[in-house]
Amino acid sequence: MSLPKKLLNEFDEVLIDRGYNSRSKGIRDALKDYIVRYQWMKDMGGDRLGIVAVIYEHHYPEVMEDITDIQHKYRDQINASMHLHLSEKNCLEVIIVKGDVSAIRNLTEKIMSLKGVENVKLTTTSSTKNN
């Protein structure tokens, strides 16, 4: 496995802060966490209300257009979005979603797969319907 030097240095700093004695143990724990989060997202069902937080490098070719195109395809699930400039390099897109969790999951995974996207975090809660 190869990692960019900057990412590996940041990971090593986290390991030191958290008191890990070995990089291997930290990698195992990080992989387990990633798998648990994926399984949690995969096992959700029904209508959900949530937030998709996306950090991306806005200078990366076409990433902004790709994110916008995906949002247009999922406009039935998107209630609002907000764009913030984090730095000269990175932006944060916060997308408020509501609807069937399978569509929300698909939206999230499509954004995750884009080149130039640094991080995607989906947070949801059950959606209540007013009768």
Score class of each variant (00 low, 15 high):
1 M>Q: 12
1 M>S: 12
2 S>N: 10
2 S>A: 08
4 P>A: 12
5 K>M: 06
5 K>Y: 00
5 K>N: 04
6 K>W: 00
8 L>W: 00
8 L>A: 12
10 E>K: 14
10 E>S: 14
11 F>R: 09
12 D>R: 15
12 D>G: 06
14 V>Q: 10
16 I>F: 13
18 R>Y: 10
20 Y>R: 11
20 Y>T: 05
22 S>V: 08
23 R>I: 02
23 R>N: 05
23 R>C: 05
24 S>F: 10
25 K>P: 00
25 K>H: 06
26 G>V: 01
28 R>M: 12
29 D>P: 04
30 A>C: 07
31 L>V: 13
31 L>H: 07
31 L>E: 08
32 K>Y: 13
33 D>V: 06
34 Y>T: 08
34 Y>W: 12
35 I>K: 15
35 I>Y: 13
37 R>P: 02
37 R>K: 15
38 Y>T: 10
40 W>C: 05
46 G>V: 04
46 G>P: 08
47 D>F: 04
48 R>Q: 08
48 R>D: 02
49 L>H: 05
52 V>Y: 01
52 V>C: 06
53 A>F: 03
53 A>W: 01
53 A>K: 06
54 V>N: 01
55 I>P: 03
58 H>G: 07
59 H>A: 11
60 Y>C: 08
62 E>C: 11
63 V>C: 13
63 V>P: 03
64 M>I: 07
64 M>Y: 05
65 E>A: 11
65 E>N: 13
66 D>W: 03
68 T>Q: 06
69 D>S: 12
71 Q>S: 05
73 K>L: 02
75 R>N: 11
77 Q>G: 02
78 I>V: 12
78 I>E: 02
79 N>D: 06
79 N>H: 12
79 N>E: 10
85 H>N: 07
85 H>Y: 12
85 H>T: 04
87 S>E: 04
93 E>Q: 14
94 V>E: 10
95 I>F: 02
95 I>A: 04
97 V>C: 04
98 K>Y: 01
101 V>S: 10
103 A>I: 02
103 A>D: 09
103 A>F: 09
105 R>G: 01
105 R>C: 04
106 N>W: 02
108 T>C: 10
109 E>I: 09
109 E>T: 09
110 K>V: 00
110 K>P: 01
111 I>N: 02
111 I>R: 00
113 S>L: 11
114 L>D: 02
115 K>W: 00
116 G>T: 03
117 V>S: 01
118 E>S: 11
118 E>H: 10
121 K>M: 11
121 K>G: 03
121 K>D: 06
121 K>A: 09
122 L>S: 06
122 L>R: 09
123 T>S: 15
123 T>R: 14
123 T>Y: 08
124 T>W: 01
124 T>V: 15
124 T>K: 05
125 T>H: 08
126 S>R: 07
126 S>N: 07
127 S>L: 15
128 T>E: 13
128 T>A: 09
131 N>Q: 12
